[in-house]
Design a protein around this nucleic acid. Structure first.
Lengths: 200, 200
DNA sequence: CAAAATAGCTTAACACTGTTAATTTAATTT
DNA sequence: AAATTAAATTAACAGTGTTAAGCTATTTTG
């Protein structure tokens, strides 16, 4: 291995080390109450070292979100390949989204719930978040071309479905004390309602 | 400035003055980027004066939210009285919820979106936000007793509907830069989908 | 091989933040 | 007029994100 490559990988290692430490802290204590100094302490570096790898604190959060988005997109794709029925693909994708959030509540909170700093008006087209959304939209398009839905507006339906599953996921995560009905029953009902409401 | 007439402005007046200034700033610039000093400047008082009326910054926002959500509960009730048809009452209530959230994004964010590690979680049952939810549930019960819905489980339906409208409200507020379809069309479609999906 | 260049990290500092304690000023009561 | 109380302020603390400059060890070069 050339020395130039060792340098590169060394730099990338520290970059990943920072992200791991930051994600752990963000998940445990929340984005706002985790300082750059705290992150630096955790990995044994000076606070300003982080700025050699990330533009600022919100950029660091943004990069962590990208990794989680990628994880979610991967999961949804895998799950959907298990079925040939477009409507069943759609349903399993929606379910996977919700349960992914419930399985990683802190990470879902960071990526989808926590109010993002007004700073980065990032191009959503480049993010893995958009990739995950596009995966679902492709299945919606499949349903539309099979004339399974009430309208052919793929974008409208996809965004409606996303609103629905994000809604149930986030309230289950956040209002944990709320006297919800049985969790799986509620999730199923939300997804059933959404699908029935969009079917032909 | 020292010759400010303090006789006319009693303690309660200043308290409300602080809330008005803070709400204006929170809405315009976002909760996080508004400092206590900025609020104090706006009303011509010292920053620490605010602490004579509010425990801390989050308490200040919490009080603002209570006022705002008292309005929401009131609005929903008023809107629903305009119709006799239970399903139309339901629809107008759902619409009012969403548009109220979009009209007061900062307040909605802190009450229904922002993760709150404070004591606030247990206060939820006492908030006007909860009152608003109960108002909607009453209308759902009305629909159920008229045999208009697919199931008689009032709690299940109410929570499903809440998940849906919270979902669309929060993503519209938070993911401001997502390429949404036309906003009103999307909101209508979400509500239509929810109602169709729960109708008999 | 020594000198120059560079990559990687740190130290010091700035302009902020929320918040508390002590203190001053103004109004009210005695 | 003096004492008391209420209201608002000043000063300070401990913390924040972030930038600029400096240091050190390694790599590149003449």
């Amino acid at each position: 291995m050339a020395s130039r490559n060792r340098q590169e990988s060394g730099k990338e290692n520290l970059r990943q080390e920072i992200m791991d430490a930051a994600r752990e802290l963000f998940v445990a204590e929340g984005y706002a109450s985790v300082s750059m100094r705290k992150i630096a302490d955790k990995i044994g570096y000076s606070p300003t070292t982080i700025y050699l790898y990330f533009k600022d604190k919100s950029d660091l959060l943004h990069q962590i979100c990208e990794q989680t988005f990628a994880h979610l997109a991967q999961n949804i794709k895998s799950i959907q390949q298990l079925s040939d029925n477009p409507l069943e693909k759609l349903r399993s994708g929606l379910r996977e989204y919700v349960y992914f959030g419930l399985k990683h509540p802190s990470q879902y909170e960071i990526v989808f719930i926590t109010p993002l700093p007004h700073k980065f008006e990032s191009d959503f087209d480049e993010t893995n978040g958009r990739v995950a959304f596009d995966t679902m939209r492709d299945v919606v398009a499949e349903c539309v071309s099979d004339n399974l839905l009430k309208t052919k507006d793929v974008e409208l339906i996809s965004q409606t479905l996303w609103a629905g599953i994000h809604g149930i996921t986030s309230i289950l995560i956040q209002h944990e004390h709320f006297p919800f009905v049985e969790r799986d029953k509620l999730i199923d009902n939300v997804i059933d309602t959404l699908i029935i409401g969009t079917k032909a």
